[in-house]
């Protein structure tokens, strides 16, 4: 808030940097120990590794079946995002533009259901999903993410579309554009800022989600990164060299995603929370 860099600002800066380092300490421990031998982890936990043990990573990579679980996570996250964006933007658009009681009722149902915690749904959901053949299927899981994510996604789109003037659409209709054409060619491109926000919030949630996939995907071949890490960590508890390398491997994709989209992420999270 100060405009000049004073001695006081310098002290504040030192304090802030020390705090920042404290925040990073857990990452230091995990990364540095993931490159040590098991014996060295036990004898010298805090020091830097003497010889870098990249073999930990090779082993963890294989035992996690990393390529497969990474691909699974990617497919599920991307597919869920695609269906959420397509169907929720369409629904929100129609709910805003149709000035009827039914639109309000449906919208309020979506919003009100955001309150329901997952634990209040999961038991019958897994039972129903079993009957519908949605268990052990990535598509089943994607449909579930559409169901769970629709409340917030429609809510965010709804708020954004309300502020888009309708005149443009009316002109397009007069020019002979179909309702689908109006939406996809005229309205949807205008939604880009909120689409980015929606995409980021949903991606972080779905990529990190553990409980739902753990209930739906029982087949080891379908495991996502959090699921695979969970079983891997359980199997190699106390075998820290492997467990830690596996943890780092699980975190890397998130870091890449974050640093490539940092600006959007911070903006998206701030705007998403305030609404």
């Amino acid at each position: 808030m100060e405009n000049k860099y004073t001695g006081r600002t310098f002290i504040v800066e030192i304090v802030a940097i020390v705090l920042g380092l404290i925040f990073l300490v857990p990452f230091y421990y995990v990364v540095s120990n993931s490159l040590k031998t098991f014996a060295e982890i036990l004898t010298n936990t805090s020091a830097l590794p003497t010889v870098l043990q990249f073999s930990n990573y090779v082993q963890a990579f294989e035992k996690l079946d990393y390529l497969r679980v990474f691909t699974n996570s990617l497919i599920i996250t991307v597919a869920s995002n695609v269906v959420l964006i397509i169907f929720c933007s369409m629904a929100a658009y129609m709910l805003v533009r149709t000035k009827k009681k039914i639109s309000n009722i449906i919208f309020m149902t979506f919003v009100a259901a955001m309150v329901i915690p997952f634990q209040s749904i999961m038991i019958p959901l897994i039972k129903t999903a079993g009957n519908l053949g949605m268990l052990n299927s990535m598509w089943g899981l994607v449909i579930m993410y559409l169901g769970f994510g629709s409340g917030m996604t429609i809510f965010l789109y709804h708020g954004f579309i309300k502020n888009i003037p309708v005149e443009l659409e009316e002109a397009a209709i007069i020019d002979g554009c179909s309702p689908f054409g109006v939406f996809w060619r005229i309205v949807f491109p205008l939604l880009k800022p909120i689409t980015v926000t929606v995409m980021i919030l949903n991606s972080l949630w779905i990529w990190n989600d553990f409980l739902l996939p753990s209930l739906v995907l029982q087949d080891p071949e379908l495991r996502t990164i959090p699921l695979a890490t969970f079983f891997f960590f359980g199997q190699y508890t106390k075998q820290w060299d492997l467990a830690l390398a596996g943890l780092v491997l699980s975190i890397i994709p998130l870091l890449i995603f974050f640093f490539s989209m940092q600006k959007h992420i911070i903006k998206g999270i701030t705007s998403g929370s305030i609404k």
Partner: peptide
Amino acid sequence: AFLAFSVIV
């Protein structure tokens, strides 16, 4: 969206 929401939630 409403169908998925109804069946899932």
